[in-house]
């Protein structure tokens, strides 16, 4: 057993885990954070995507012990009872998802992209989502929603600059 301490969505959490435990199963089974989904467990689908020290990572491919001492952001860290992350709000507004199984991972991938590059091209958006498979939507309204968030952000920055 290994003792690990991981800061998850700003809260320090501890667990005792066998060495083969993935970060995904620690999140879901040790800490009850079931927002990150288990799709394939081998890095193909992206449903388990989380941020580790700001980088998007497949939580099924990272061992929990490798996350020891790091900062992890999961889908649960993006919104509260009172508010949604702008990406989530845009996805809701445009009905971007259907079953929603891919959504937690895709939203995290989109956040990782926008943290890095607030004004991506459509191709850059599609590249950022290429590791997140969706069986339902064809990605069209997902890309549209991210584009809308970037535009709103650019407008807000423009207003600030001209003020």
């Amino acid at each position: 057993m290994h003792h690990i301490e991981v800061t998850i969505n700003g809260v320090l959490r501890r667990a005792e885990v066998p060495p083969e435990t993935t970060l995904l199963s620690a999140l879901r089974d040790s800490w009850g954070l079931t927002g990150s989904k288990l799709g394939c467990d081998v890095g193909d689908c992206g449903a388990c995507t989380v941020l580790v020290d700001g980088l998007s990572v497949n939580a099924c491919l990272l061992l929990a012990v490798q996350a020891d001492g790091r900062e992890v952001v999961t889908i649960e860290g993006l919104s509260g009872f009172e508010y949604l992350h702008p990406l989530q709000a845009a996805f809701e507004r445009l009905s971007s998802y259907q079953c929603g199984f891919c959504a937690p991972g895709m939203i995290i991938s989109a956040k990782a992209l926008l943290d890095e590059n607030p004004a991506p091209t459509e191709l850059e958006i599609r590249e950022a989502l290429a590791g997140n498979l969706c069986r339902c939507t064809g990605y069209t309204k997902v890309v549209d929603a991210i584009t809308e968030v970037c535009r709103d952000h650019a407008n807000a920055v423009g207003v600030e600059e001209s003020a």
């Binding site: 259907q98 064809g138 990605y139």
Partner: peptide
Amino acid sequence: GQIEGGIA
């Protein structure tokens, strides 16, 4: 959404 997904 259904049409886009069906096309995919």
